[in-house]
Design a protein around this nucleic acid. Structure first.
Length: 388
DNA sequence: TCTGGGGTCCTAGGACCC
DNA sequence: TCTGGGGTCCTAGGACCC
């Protein structure tokens, strides 16, 4: 169907196998070979070791059920600092094989290998295999690697033969990859879209890739791009910038029990606003838009947007507006499960325009004195304590 | 399995203008 | 007073990801 030369581009996708559980076992060798899950703080299993999967434990299974049904399983809280240390080490090793590395998530990376076969004097598959071996040996974890022509195909390739899988699909072999992958496993096609596609008799990545251009024309832009990638074209670039820029920041927490207590909810929203503004300041941002939100028992969101007259760096500068918004979304007959605050329209302060005249706003002058005290305090969201 | 927390991108449609 | 056609800008919210 697709006539493509072997390697117009070469992208590798590296994905940790049960990463959180593997890292825990690598760090505590006594746990190796034992059934283990992480995520107890969440109430459901976030990561499930392969030994635990063998018992029948799946991701998302409630912790209390695991305790009841699988008493031999070790249950631990998540430790994101530890995972991050291993991830950083993994990215570092990958950079020994190519300078173009995208740190996609805490356990995933994309690597552009194009041209590297001249530097290493060997084939692309062999380079990727060397990187895989080195990570597994040095970190003591297992990863699965997929190599193909672009990000979407590499990601499909790394979904096969887990754990410790190694899958290479050049241009001549794309179809044999696509045939193996159900449509809902395609990166960017979620439950809504796969349900729609199945109605049109599209069940695999291959069915989708060979759909006609006329059919694809009805779909939204992201799906057109995925369609092109599955056919072997390179559409998505790697983002190799380190993650220190944000478009928005969010803080939210689900209560242990849904509630309609008005002043309690208001205090939580303010605490989230404090926290998210603190993070924004840490990254040097001032804030152009603030959203506060409540989510009710039926998972319906109620949001209110505040746009301050000028970009601000402390939520108290918009406090009256926020309160007004809260009054607008709060209904006493509803029960709310989550409260939160999002900031967006973020601008780096050092790049933003310096006010023409010295700011003598008395509230702000006062704040500057007060807020240093805030910078290191702990903020209470109503559940657990978070270090600022 | 009743479903956490933190993000990004896209689009329909309303507001407003001529 | 009643009204067409077309443009831009913005926002709410949906869909998706890990």
């Amino acid at each position: 169907m697709f006539q493509i030369q072997s390697w117009p581009h070469v992208i590798a996708h590296i994905d940790g196998d049960a990463f959180f559980a593997s890292v825990t076992q690598a760090e505590h060798p006594s746990l190796k070979g034992k059934p283990l899950v992480t995520g107890s703080e969440r109430g459901i299993a976030t990561a499930v070791s392969y030994e635990a999967r063998a018992l029948g434990i799946t991701r998302g299974l409630p912790i209390f059920k695991i305790k009841q049904q699988f008493p031999s399983c070790i249950i631990l809280e998540s430790d994101y600092r530890l995972y991050s240390v291993y991830a950083t080490e993994m990215f570092k090793i990958l950079r020994e094989f190519s300078p173009w590395v995208e740190e996609y998530s805490i356990d995933e990376a994309f690597v552009d290998l194009k041209g590297m076969r001249y530097a290493f004097r060997t084939g692309y598959g062999e380079i990727a295999l060397q990187a895989k071996d080195k990570i597994e040996e040095k970190l003591g974890i297992s990863i699965t690697v997929g190599v193909s022509l672009n990000k979407s195909l590499a990601k499909l390739a790394s979904s096969l033969n887990r754990p410790s899988g190694f899958n290479v699909f050049s241009g001549k072999h794309i179809e044999s990859l696509l045939i193996q992958v159900p449509i809902e496993k395609v990166w960017g096609i979620g439950s809504q879209t796969s349900a729609y596609l199945k109605k049109h008799n599209i069940y695999t990545a291959h069915d989708f890739a060979k759909s006609s251009e006329q059919f694809i024309a009805y779909l939204a832009k992201p799906y057109k791009e995925i369609w092109r990638e599955l056919r072997g074209e390179k559409v998505f670039d790697l983002d190799t910038d380190p993650k220190n820029t944000y478009k928005s920041m969010l803080s939210s927490r689900t209560f242990s029990k849904p509630t309609n207590k008005k002043e309690f909810l208001w205090s939580r929203i303010l605490a989230h606003a404090e926290y998210v503004f603190l993070r924004a300041r840490k990254f040097g941002y001032s804030v152009g838009k603030i959203h506060i939100f409540l989510k009710n028992q039926r998972f319906k969101y109620f949001t209110y947007q505040v746009v301050p007259f000028e970009k601000i760096t402390y939520p108290i500068e918009a406090r009256d507006e926020l309160r007004k918004g809260f009054e607008a979304i709060y209904k006493k007959e509803d029960l709310y499960r989550t409260a939160g605050c999002t900031v967006s329209d973020l601008v780096q302060v050092k790049n933003s325009q310096i006010p023409l005249f010295k700011n003598t706003n008395p509230v702000r002058e006062k704040l500057k004195k007060i807020y240093p005290l805030y910078e290191n305090r702990k903020i209470n969201f109503g559940g657990s304590l978070f270090e600022a």
